[in-house]
Nucleic acid binder design. Structure first.
Length: 808
RNA sequence: GCGGGUGUGGCGGAAUUGGCAGACGCACCAGACUUAGGAUCUGGCGGGCAACCGUGGGGGUUCGAGUCCCUUCACCCGCACCA
């Protein structure tokens, strides 16, 4: 008797796939394309655990499913290989990041091979290889030429531990996204990418995407579009004016004071000598407070009067100008008009500083209240009061009328503001793509000519960040000293490198043409394969990688090298795998590694368990014992096929045909709906039903079973298919069709209820009319008895489901 | 504070459009086979002796609610003085 031996089966078929080059994409098959992509990993030294497997198993199962459905499937894998861990390791141990990265990649590749996934390794890419990053640099040069890359001296987020600048997206709760250290501000001359000029499109085009609503919301919030107006306030006895942004131009009559951010450039010049000392002390105090304490913990309102006044443009009243740290220099104009009656923060501040509160919106059908009587700001809709020509209007009407007035009087204009900031794109670290620019005294900043790329990352003696704001590359004279591409005079190279995200912004494009040495990719190839049909990965990239990749795609679209402007049509975020309630991580010591599980149960069992463990989008706790259940299922499945394989005469009974077609119909729905946990339970039920069935199982049913099992447990499926006598791979088959005739029954069991409670069950023919059903139900002994002394008030018949009598 | 999500047996979780709650698996219990069982197979397994009661709590709509509406509680995630 044949016994299920995963080890021999799995090595046999993995060898077969390799020898037959089974996973290589056939560019000329003429089949419709499907691009199923995993978020490629950073090859860390820790290797893969069962949590990493989850997303890869889902995407591999889905990719194989699509292949069996007749698609030419692109399912590639590569390495996001630039990054800090390799560099920090280099600092500690002196090993070149290139070496440790190569070693980690080899380990990852070995581990991924154990999964039996259908990756087309001929397309493997590595973002830290010059063959790849020359085109990352090429894209940067294009952006520079398009005016999208620029250098600016400004206070940026600085991680004192990583000793590098960070993008806004990399600051989480005031800490560094990577190491958790408290982020400080540091004034630096930085390379920036003008992602803000794409803000509107990045927001608008979210509508086109089949992404989880949560991720779309997160991106929308991050982009943070606000519609309102800019208003100019001229100053009393001072030549300058202050521009504010407000979403509530309708409340302008209620503006009773103004607030500038402490960093606002006008603070110094408008402050009166009497207030100078207090203002300077407050500004100093604010700047030393970390972003963390300023924004998160302490929201009590503080501030100082500057001594200056501005005229409210609608009524020429002089209103005092304060500085306060609740106004942020980064947002809007760094200055606000304060309307305490209708803004919670302004209300708090006004209360704290005894400033007047002037209501200009009255709730509909309510008595107008005075500012003194208010206990909180009124932010709802209502009718304008105390607002001159606006009186009686609704908030919306007043907004547009006020904007029109401001524009006509040249005192302001309608305006839109975004929370999104430009992307700080430079890092003062070693292990990244050198920014391909040259500083020339005569010509200024000049991009390295495209044909001279890549600017190779040189070897260094010391990897330590200097901490002075310069990267380790600045210490390498042979790298720094060059000649100007334009005038040929001596010049200096830019020594900053790109952030870790750079390579992943376009890798999905490179997979379609990974060995192209002339250009990043051939346009016709990228237009054929892209956009990615299904993108699978963790939700942690919701506003980092996914936003950046969308931005790059739009830039490349505008450059004319892509015909589409959104990279990922559909996104799926798999849930985390937890152990003891915490995300698995090596540092917490709670990782479950796949190796020993594969040793004990085989890859197919682990694959199925990853799917069975729970709804794929929900976090799942690893249960070390539950895996036995799926192993038993595979043992039973294997035995079923082995036992029946030689029986060429078995004919499918109509019962078996019904079972099979129903199973596959249900399976299709569950796969398309990404309900893989129920996919596995469906298989278990089907196998049990076949085992319990009195007649022999026919070969057609077994063959169909092996085909539909193949996406999930490919090795067992191949073996079972071979046991049935087929000599090709099961993946040369096509997905079985469902025959609708087997999905309907002639007879079904219905439930008989009285007042909604089940009293009986009976079989009826599906063709019976409602009247006939009622009649036969009523004639049943149990019903005759139950209805004996009752009056039927109402009778409900749900065809094929139930009959309900409402009785008194 | 704002936004999103989740609450179903001892556990993970099932349940088209409102129509048999608890599929499937784990754990557990009993039995079979065994020198043995942490192997395998068979059966049982929400609570209650029962009528009945049961999907976080309370209310509602309906012949009928895990599913729809209102309200409330708990937990999780994201954003967080964004004018």
């Amino acid at each position: 008797m044949l016994v299920y031996d995963p080890k021999s089966i799995e090595s046999k078929w993995q060898t077969y796939w390799q020898e037959h080059d089974s996973h290589r994409v056939n560019e000329s098959s003429g089949k419709p394309k499907y691009y199923c992509l995993d978020m490629f990993p950073y090859p860390s030294g820790s290797g893969l655990h069962v949590g990493h497997w989850r997303g890869y198993v889902i995407s591999d199962a889905f990719a194989r499913f699509k292949k069996l459905q007749g698609y030419e499937v692109l399912h590639p894998m590569g390495w996001d290989a630039f990054g800090l861990p390799a560099e920090n390791d280099a600092i500690k141990k002196g090993i070149h990041p290139k070496e440790s990265t190569a070693r980690n990649i080899a380990n990852f590749k070995k581990q991924l091979a154990q999964m039996g996934a259908m990756f087309d390794w001929s397309r493997e890419i590595n973002t830290s290889s010059p063959e790849y990053y020359q085109f990352t640099q090429w894209i940067f040069v294009k952006m520079f030429k398009m005016g999208l890359a620029y250098r600016k001296e400004m206070p940026i987020n600085w991680c004192p531990s990583c000793k590098t600048g960070l993008a806004n997206e990399e600051v989480v709760d005031g800490g560094c996204e990577r190491c958790g250290s408290t982020v400080t501000k540091r004034n630096m001359n930085q390379w920036m990418l003008r992602i803000t000029s794409y803000a509107d499109r990045l927001l608008q085009d979210l509508d086109k995407l089949k992404w989880p609503e949560k991720v779309k919301k997160m991106q929308a919030n991050w982009i943070g579009k606000s519609i309102g107006a800019h208003v100019h306030f001229s100053l009393v006895d001072h030549p300058s004016s202050i521009e504010v942004f407000t979403t509530r131009p309708d409340t302008l009559y209620g503006a009773t004071y103004m607030v500038l951010a402490p960093e606002h450039p006008l603070v110094e010049s408008i402050t009166t000598s009497a207030q100078k000392e207090a203002v300077e002390a407050y500004v100093k105090d604010t700047l030393t407070k970390s972003a963390l304490s300023r924004q998160i913990f302490d929201k009590t309102k503080t501030g100082v009067f500057t001594g200056a006044y501005a005229y409210n443009p609608v009524n020429q009243k002089a209103i005092p100008i304060y500085i306060a740290d609740y106004v942020l220099m980064e947002y809007g104009t760094g200055a606000i008009m304060a309307v305490p009656a209708h803004d919670e923060r302004d209300f708090e501040f006004a209360k704290a500083f005894g400033l007047p509160i002037m209501p200009v919106i009255s709730p509909k059908n309510a008595e107008p209240i005075t500012g003194d009587a208010m206990t909180e700001a009124y932010v709802g809709d209502g009718v304008l009061v105390h607002s001159g020509a606006l009186d009686g209007l609704s908030v919306d009407e007043a907004k547009s009328k006020m904007i029109a007035w401001l524009e006509q009087e040249q005192k302001g204009s309608g305006a839109t503001t975004f929370k999104l900031r430009d992307w700080v794109f430079a890092r003062q670290r070693y292990w990244g793509e050198p920014i391909p620019l040259v500083h020339c005294d005569a010509c200024g900043i000049v991009p390295v000519p495209e044909e001279e790329l890549p600017v190779l990352l040189p070897d260094v003696e010391r990897y330590e960040p200097t901490g002075t704001g310069e990267s380790p590359l600045a210490g390498i004279e042979s790298f720094v000293n060059t000649t100007c591409p334009t005038c040929g005079q001596p010049a200096r190279r830019e020594t900053d490198t790109m952030p870790q995200w750079a390579g992943s912004c376009w890798y999905f494009l490179r997979f379609v043409d990974p060995h192209n040495t002339k250009e990043p990719f051939a346009k016709e190839k990228v237009d054929h394969w892209l956009p990615v049909d299904m993108y699978i990965g963790g939700v942690e990239h919701a506003v980092l990688h996914l936003l950046y990749a969308r931005f790059f795609t739009k830039v490349l679209h505008d450059l004319g090298v892509l015909s589409f402007d959104e990279p990922f049509t559909q996104l799926f975020n798999q849930g985390m795998m937890t152990l003891n309630g915490a995300k698995m991580s090596k540092s917490k010591g709670n990782v479950v590694s796949p190796e020993e599980l594969i040793e004990k149960y085989g890859t197919d069992t682990l694959r199925l368990y990853e799917l069975f463990v729970g709804p794929p989008e929900v976090d799942a706790e690893w249960n070390p014992r539950a895996i036995d259940g799926v192993y038993r299922f595979l043992v039973k499945t294997y035995r079923l096929v082995a036992d029946h394989a030689k029986d060429t005469h078995a004919v499918a009974s109509s019962d078996v045909l019904k079972l099979r077609h129903r199973f596959i119909a249900q399976l299709n729905e569950r796969i398309e709906g990404f309900r893989f946990n129920t996919v596995v339970s469906g298989f278990m039920e089907f196998i049990s039903a076949l085992q319990d069935h009195p007649t022999k199982v026919d070969r057609e049913t077994l063959k169909a079973l092996m085909i539909v099992l193949a996406p999930f447990a490919p090795h067992v499926a191949e073996e079972g298919y071979a046991l049935l006598g087929y000599t090709n791979s099961v993946f040369t088959e096509t997905w079985p069709q469902v025959d609708g005739q087997y999905l309907v029954d002639d007879e079904v069991e219905i439930v008989v209820q009285i007042n909604g409670k089940i009293r009986d069950r009976m079989m009826i023919a599906l063709t019976m009319s409602e009247e006939a059903v009622l009649e036969s139900v009523k004639s049943r002994e149990t019903m005759v008895e139950a209805l004996n002394d009752k009056t039927i008030v109402k009778q409900i018949v749900v065809p094929g489901k139930l009959v309900n009598f409402v009785v008194k």
